[in-house]
Amino acid sequence: MDGAVKPEGSAYYPMLPSLMRKAYTADKRLGFQADSLPGLEAWRGELRSKLAELTGLDRMKACALDPQHMEGPVQLDGYRREKLRIQTEQDVWMPFYVLVPDGLKSGEKRPVVIAAHGHAGGGKESVAGVVSHPAIHAAVDKYSYDYGVQLVRQGYVVLCPDARGFGERREYWKQGDSDKQVMSSSCNHLNHAAISMGYALIGFLIWDLQRLIDFLPSLSYADADRIGCSGFSGGGMQALWLAALDDRVRATVVSGYLSGYKDVLLLETHCGCNYVPRLWEYADYGDIAALIAPRPLLVESGDDDPNSGPRRVDNVREQLDITGKAYALFGCEDRLALAVHEGGHRWYGERVASFLKEAL
């Protein structure tokens, strides 16, 4: 709470210290406490139900996907790229790139990785290596943001979607081609509006990814029984929540995201898409990650990543201690891995290839 203490002699009277006291004294009603597999399964069902309620996922309605081809195929170095779109809710469309590795034999199906993007990358463009805009090119260089391309070159079919509020899904006041506009998002406004209606933006993002999984069987070269999800920063947030709530995801890579909310969401300033009303009454991110057990989970973090909060990687390890208890009950601690790298906030990816090869 050091960052929330009122400085000696200050003329200001903020309310953050009061919020921090509330957060630190609140009981996690659905924090992980199981001591048996039957207890774990009961807890999993209860927490998943509560998360669906808090995010509005339990009120989402499916519609016809109506897949449409938009661009391509374009042959690139070692893979081809196409752009499609699907309808995730009535009149709500999600465009995405499909990256297909070269060398597929007739009738062959490859494992699939959904590569979710975060902020400051122009949406799906950076992940898919579409760097026609100078700002996106700079983001790829800074954050190693083209992990969709890295993954397809490892032999996976990769889907790179735009999340709501990003890329081609920006609302009208954020649309345009300037550096600032291309790199911006509408998620603060969208989450404010969603919260006022009893939803949370993360619920919409996860719904869209679940609909993308529903679409996968229509791709003749995609093995819909071997699905991984990966993401950096806000993409790591999406990967974490998707895998926690959807057992169809068999392996998960969370980069630059998993840490405790008290250090991060209260002491630091983050985008509104991270915030779910009343979440901290029930669970922290380590508890949400525990919902993924026993499926393989790789968490990577820079040892000086400011997005992990003032305690940096200690905050990450604290949450994974919670997660590890679920894996221990299954007797598969080896399926939970933490890769700490020297550096700040970026995608590292050094252990991803070997992790996914074994998991998928």
Rank of each mutant, 00 (worst) to 15 (best):
Glu171Gln: 13
Gly198Leu: 05
Ala244Tyr: 09
Arg278Asp: 13
Ser301Thr: 13
Leu201Trp: 09
Thr252Gln: 00
Trp241Ile: 02
Phe166Lys: 00
Asn274Pro: 00
Ile202Leu: 11
Ala293Val: 08
Asn191Thr: 01
Ser218Glu: 14
Ile206Gln: 04
Val253Cys: 06
Glu171Tyr: 13
Asp246Tyr: 05
Arg248Phe: 11
Gly286Asp: 02
Phe204Gly: 01
Asn274Gln: 08
Asp247Gly: 14
Ala290Tyr: 04
Tyr172Val: 15
Tyr199Cys: 01
Tyr221His: 13
Val276Glu: 01
Arg250Asp: 08
Ala243Pro: 08
Ser230Ala: 15
Leu205Met: 14
Tyr261Arg: 14
Lys180Met: 06
Pro306Phe: 11
Pro217Gln: 09
Arg250Tyr: 02
Ser178Gly: 15
Arg248Ile: 10
Gly260Trp: 05
Ser196Pro: 01
Lys180Tyr: 11
Met183Trp: 10
Gly272Tyr: 07
Leu291Trp: 03
Arg170Lys: 15
Pro277Ala: 07
Gly167Ser: 05
Gly272Lys: 02
Arg226Lys: 14
Phe215Tyr: 15
Asp287Met: 12
Asp247Arg: 15
Gly260Glu: 05
Ala194Lys: 00
Trp280Gly: 03
Phe204Val: 05
Ala244Pro: 09
Phe215Val: 07
Lys174Ser: 01
Ile213Glu: 03
Asp179Gly: 04
Thr269Cys: 09
Thr269Glu: 13
Ile202Phe: 06
Gly235Val: 12
Tyr221Thr: 05
Gly302Tyr: 12
Phe204Leu: 06
Asn191Cys: 01
Leu190Gln: 06
Leu242Tyr: 09
Gly228Arg: 01
Trp173Tyr: 13
Ile195Ser: 02
Ala251Thr: 12
